[in-house]
Design a protein around this nucleic acid. Structure first.
Lengths: 195, 195
DNA sequence: GTCTATAGCCCGATAGAC
DNA sequence: GTCTATCGGGCTATAGAC
């Protein structure tokens, strides 16, 4: 703890942050390694030593971001018991991240199959979506959510939330999402609640 | 009509179609001109003669696709009088294009600011979205849609529809959208209808 | 371990034959 | 008008000094 020799992990984090920022702005192929060098302050050699190549770097950025989001989501979920409360927790987390770490949210929505890697699907279609879908399954089972396809219900609910995030990031929605959070969550819920 | 000399417009269209297909698959920067040559059967020289450069080609692809979508949308809207009917027309058009010309829909959802050009916002945030918002404004004025922010209502409705399209294109939704169209449209409407 | 310098490659755009 | 051959530039990845 007292040793204070420069932490290699710190450099790695700087590279990941810089890379994500640039990927969001210009896309994977639009970002050259020398740009990441300038943005992160870490040299080309160090980047290739730690990440191997550009594609591996992108995959690491993806995994770190995904892990962080799922961690935050789990935290928020704990303690919530009602279906409605869990879905509200998901929505409010999405809104908060959008306002407080818009770069992270923008990255999650913009990751596409630009990279050859087949593993890189848009974050919000993968684990987080599955988690929401399980919550909705429970809601249908308990009768709180109207019966029908559970997938359709999940699409309907998350659609409202994610679209709001997208349009906020694009500047179409000018107020912070927290200010319209209640209205949005009410609409999303109204779409799927049992009458 | 009998002259039958090769139509230059035909070649242009082939290039546009090929370029859009490849842009969807690999992103603007991921596509090299020689690939477009191979896909379209039109030579490098001809492409540069007609489009000037790669960026202009991308802009043309964008404009042509936008114009086509807005045209189809206008057609569908004519004759519809109720607010609910107009919104249904929008939704069903989106679902139909997704199933019958998935490349066009995927392009519309995937166009990002990859190109330097500032004019290229995601299609579904621009004119089509504004059109839907006007319909919703009318609905609020007439009392069919619950009062509140008109933007929020538009976000809520289109969110359900667009998210369904996205997940269908990604293969998460396995049935054709027409089969779940009614359920989706009912959910989207339930989110914003006056009680 | 970390850097800079550069090799090697591929792309966009053009020039000039037909 | 349409083609092919090619140039210059910028990229990723590596080699070798420190």
């Amino acid at each position: 703890m007292e040793k204070r020799k420069i932490n290699p992990q710190e450099k790695i984090d700087q590279v990941i942050r810089a890379a994500r920022k640039l990927f969001v702005k210009k896309g994977y192929r639009g970002v050259a390694i020398p740009e990441i060098v300038k943005e992160s302050g870490v040299s080309v050699g160090a980047i290739y030593l730690h990440f191997g190549n550009k594609e591996k770097l992108a995959e690491t950025v993806y995994e770190v971001t995904l892990r962080r989001f799922m961690g935050l989501f789990s935290e928020r979920l704990s303690g919530k018991e009602s279906i409605q409360g869990k879905l509200r927790a998901f929505s409010e987390l999405a809104f908060e991240i959008t306002e407080e770490d818009s770069e992270m949210m923008e990255y999650m929505l913009s990751v596409r199959k630009e990279i050859r890697s087949d593993l890189l699907l848009p974050l919000c279609s993968s684990d987080a979506f599955k988690e929401v879908q399980m919550i909705i399954n429970d809601g249908i089972a308990s009768g709180e959510i109207k019966s029908g396809s559970d997938l359709v219900a999940a699409v309907s609910y998350t659609g409202v939330i994610i679209r709001a995030v997208e349009l906020r990031l694009q500047g179409v929605l000018e107020q912070p999402l927290q200010e319209i959070s209640d209205e949005l969550i009410k609409n999303a819920w109204a779409g799927i609640v049992a009458e």
